[in-house]
Design a protein around this nucleic acid. Sequence first.
DNA 1: GGTAGTGTGTAGTATATGGTACACGCATGA
DNA 2: TCATGCGTGTACCATATACTACACACTACC
Lengths: 117, 117
Amino acid sequence: MSNFGDYLRKVREERRSGDATFSVRQLASRVGVEPSYLSKVERGQQQPPSEKTIAALANELDEDPDVLLALAGKVSGDLQSIIRRRPKLFAELIRQLKDMPDHAVLRLVREVRDGEW
Amino acid sequence: MSNFGDYLRKVREERRSGDATFSVRQLASRVGVEPSYLSKVERGQQQPPSEKTIAALANELDEDPDVLLALAGKVSGDLQSIIRRRPKLFAELIRQLKDMPDHAVLRLVREVRDGEW
DNA sequence: GGTAGTGTGTAGTATATGGTACACGCATGA
DNA sequence: TCATGCGTGTACCATATACTACACACTACC
């Protein structure tokens, strides 16, 4: 699920199967936008919405806001702070991560979490 | 040097000591913006400029565009692609990196570069 | 067969973004 | 003392962004 709109629609329809209030209209209303706008966002005919609206969507859908923000190409404050503190280092890291397979990244995350750093 | 404007001014003044053509006016002219605008950007009174303008600045100042873009909070295409492909993984990695000391990140980069991954 | 709910198309809009235009005051040097 | 170059302040502006407003067509229920 590689883009914001598809992901949003998928999540909304999952919620909807359990709870009939997750129509485009209902969700848009609770989030505070027009249904036609939300519909276009889900189909990728609009750019992803503002961070405020994304946060509201995440809240209503009980989703991780960071994931939605990442999918929308809006980078979290944490990431910004890393970039600002060590830009060259970060650029280099990204260059390396680009060609790193999933299992390698997973191993890194595991090692870091287990305090090996 | 933690923000775009300060960094830009520092680099420009370094170049200037060697070459008198690196005044605000001269650089702005070559980049194709107004000097007052460039001045405000350097002092942080304007948001960082567009990616196009940042690229032109990087070119004229012989700087790494990725670093300037990172400082400006504009994330590179490579990073976007990573985020889109593996958003949760990336969010987790960032959470870990946040508290990682410099030497740990450096070690990671070194290991990756040396093919240990 | 009307009405209630569904998603969507089109047209328009307020505000933010990314600048321009031009003038001002300060140094420096001739 | 005045021309030249420096950075900067103020006012304005064109375009893009992030939406709104409203109507339309389809389905299902009764």
